[in-house]
């Protein structure tokens, strides 16, 4: 079953921050890891990942390091303390949302 685009859109920042909490990653690696962890339920249009990463970088939630890999320049992102704080907030927000949704639709 495919997840609605709108539903995914609202949680991409949380997903990206969660991925980067585990380890520093470059864009393609992040997309692949996200697909694996969600059993291909979360598949983003890959071009949309970079504006999200750049926004997080601009706001100081992630930092990027350039290096050379496979003969190409590669930008690897890692989470900052500010990013960790945002992730905690997003997780708390998500828990509240999920709990409320479950109560409304009668799962709990």
């Amino acid at each position: 079953m495919k997840i609605s685009k709108e539903l995914l859109k609202g949680s991409t920042t949380l997903l990206v921050l969660s991925m980067l909490e585990q380890q520093p990653m470059y864009g393609y690696q992040l997309i692949k890891r996200l697909e694996q962890r969600s059993s291909s339920v979360f598949t983003l249009k890959e071009g949309t990942l970079y504006p999200i990463l750049h926004t997080l970088e601009s706001e100081g939630q992630v930092e990027a390091i350039w290096s050379e890999a496979d003969g190409r320049q590669r930008k690897t992102y890692h989470l900052t303390d500010k990013g960790r704080k945002l992730l905690q907030e997003k997780k708390a927000e998500w828990d509240l949302f999920r709990g409320s949704l479950d109560r409304v639709i009668g799962e709990v």
Binding site: K45, E46, G47, T48, Y50, P51, H54, T55, S58
Partner: peptide, 17 residues
């Protein structure tokens, strides 16, 4: 194909840069 619409990517990048 996996990258999606280039103009959408550009539009989103313009919101940041």
């Amino acid at each position: 194909r996996q990258m999606g619409e280039p103009l959408e990517t550009a539009r989103q990048l313009n919101k940041v840069h």
